[in-house]
Each structure stands twice: as structure tokens, then as C-alpha cells.
């Protein structure tokens, strides 16, 4: 630790200034927009903007879809990457091919992958061909409610490897003797997973869950590249609503929506954090 002198300013200032200018200061000054009416006089209207925002049908829809897509995809991502990491760990040091292939999609830009997904999920495409062969009904993946499925698949495909690699790194710290003990006691795969491995790597498991959850808020990307700015109601996200308000220069609604969402997200993470604390004890 360096304690004396002002050298730290040299290292701190460039980054700190950018953080202050682009995030912190406007985050506070923006509150002003959300409590005024946007007219020339900029009259103070209190929480009126928030009221009309929360009554807005499109905001409700966007918020609901964004949260629903997160609640569905984050746990799937978390569980799948945990199990894959366990399986991969059990055959280590082999499994390098799987590890590399699983991580590759994280770097592959989803926009460039769009074309092939459109083919795979087409009504007459390979996926429905399999459905046909199994004697199942074909599904219109790219329309209406079913659109959520390809979007979640694309999202999981992209993020699975990254989460798995974080788990894998943590699993390497679990002493082999603990597994051996569990085997002696007659514990199967699930006992080893949830009674031995998971408690040992709890902070990492929590971190992966939070990262997965943060990433699910970016699911707009997948929706946009498939369905554009005006998608089906089932996948209309909060980002769509806000982009729309931005293009109308409605800064009152945009800021009110941002602060509402910020409060929801931070409360959510605070609850998760407390839960993790309790679990750790």
C-alpha cells in the first residue's frame, strides 16, 4: 500500500473523470428531468412522471417481459453451466475440446450468427424437420409467443461457456478427498454436486448467478437482431420502450423509466446478496 504523496491522482484521475462525467454526475442531475414537466418553464411536477410511466401499457409490457426473460434464462444458464462444469471436472485433465468449443460462442458476435439461426428455426428448417420425424407438431418458432424459445436458446448458447469456465476454475479448488469421502459414504452425483461442491464454491456460484442475471438484461440484442425495433408483444423489452421514448425526445419518461428500473435491479441484487450471506453462515 502506498500512503504518501499525490502520485495516486495520476493513476486515478483519467478514469475517475470519465466515470464522473459519463455516469455519476448525470445519474444525479438526471433526477431533475424525471420530476419536471419538460416544458419551457420546466415546472416541478413531483412524482407525476413516475405515475404516468407506471400506468403506461408499453412500459408495463417491456418491464414484465424483461423481468420474465431474466427469470427464465438466468436459472437455466446457472444450472446448466454448473452441471457441465462438474461433468467436465470429473473427466479432467481431458475435455479441453469441449471447454474450448463451449467458450467460443461468447466471442462470436450474435449479429453475425443471426442468419444461421433463422435457417435452423425456420418453419421448414432443420429443427422442425426433427419434430416432423418424431411425429410432433411443427412450431412457428419465429412468430408470436414461440419467439421466446429461439431468443433464449441463442442467449444460452452464447453465455453457457463463459459461466461454465468460471465454475470450472472454482471447482479446481475443491479437494479431491471430499469427493472420495462422499463416494465412500455412498453419495451419488447429486450429493456430490449439492452437498460437496456447491457449498465449497458458494461465492463463485453467487457471482456466476449475478453475472448471468446482468447479462440477461442484454437479451434485447437477440430480440433486436431477429425482430427489430417493433417485435412481437411477447418479446417487447424495456430497452425497446426506452429507445422509442428516446427517439421521441421524451426525456421525462426515459429518466423516470431508468430510475424505476435501477431501483428494481438494485433491490433485487441486494436481496440476492443478503440471501448469499445467510447461506454462507
Amino acid at each position: 500500500m502506498f500512503r504518501k504523496g499525490r502520485v495516486f491522482l495520476l493513476f486515478l484521475l483519467p478514469g475517475l473523470l470519465l466515470l464522473l462525467i459519463f455516469y455519476v454526475i448525470p445519474l444525479f442531475s438526471g433526477i431533475f428531468y424525471s420530476v419536471t414537466d419538460g416544458s419551457k418553464a420546466n415546472a416541478f411536477v413531483g412524482l407525476k412522471n413516475y405515475e404516468s410511466l407506471w400506468q403506461n401499457k408499453m412500459f408495463q409490457l417491456g418491464l414484465k417481459n424483461t423481468l420474465e426473460l431474466s427469470v427464465i434464462s438466468a436459472p437455466i444458464l446457472w444450472v446448466a453451466s454448473f452441471f457441465l462444469a462438474l461433468l467436465l471436472q470429473s473427466i479432467s485433465p481431458r475435455g479441453g475440446f469441449f471447454r474450448s468449443s463451449a467458450l467460443l460462442p461468447y466471442l462470436a458476435p450474435s449479429s453475425a450468427m443471426l442468419l444461421v439461426w433463422l435457417v435452423l428455426f425456420d418453419y421448414g428448417g432443420p429443427l422442425n424437420r426433427v419434430a416432423d420425424a418424431l411425429g410432433l407438431q411443427r412450431v412457428m418458432w419465429l412468430e408470436s409467443d414461440a419467439l421466446r424459445v429461439p431468443i433464449i436458446v441463442m442467449f444460452i448458447w452464447k453465455n453457457l461457456g463463459f459461466c461454465m469456465v468460471i465454475f470450472l476454475a472454482a471447482l479446481q479448488t475443491v479437494p479431491q478427498s471430499l469427493y472420495e469421502y462422499a463416494t465412500l459414504e455412498g453419495g451419488g452425483f447429486f450429493v456430490k454436486a449439492f452437498r460437496v461442491a456447491l457449498p465449497h464454491i458458494l461465492p463463485t456460484a453467487f457471482l456466476v448467478f449475478v453475472l448471468a442475471w446482468i447479462n440477461t438484461f442484454k437479451i434485447f440484442k437477440e430480440v433486436y437482431i431477429i425482430a427489430g425495433s417493433y417485435p412481437d408483444r411477447s418479446v417487447y423489452t424495456l430497452q425497446h420502450y426506452m429507445n422509442n421514448m428516446f427517439s421521441r425526445l421524451d426525456y421525462q419518461m426515459v429518466t423516470a423509466a431508468a430510475y424505476s428500473f435501477a431501483v428494481i435491479v438494485l433491490v433485487l441484487f441486494a436481496m440476492l446478496f443478503l440471501l448469499q450471506r445467510r447461506a454462507a453462515q
Binding site: L19, I21, F22, Y23, V24, I25, P26, L27, S29, G30, Y33, T66, V210, I214, F217, K218, F220, L238, Q239, M242, F246, Y251, V254, T255, A257, A258, Y259, F261, A262, V265, L266, F269
Partner: peptide, 18 residues
């Protein structure tokens, strides 16, 4: 850490203001 937790939908708004 707080900024890291906030989704783009939130942080883009102050950025646009600046």
C-alpha cells in the same frame, strides 16, 4: 460495483444526457 450491476437500460440515460 453499483455501476457494474446497473443494466445498460439504466446507464445509457445519464450517458445520453452528457
Amino acid at each position: 460495483i453499483v455501476l457494474l450491476l446497473l443494466p445498460f437500460q439504466v446507464t445509457m440515460v445519464p450517458t445520453v444526457l452528457t
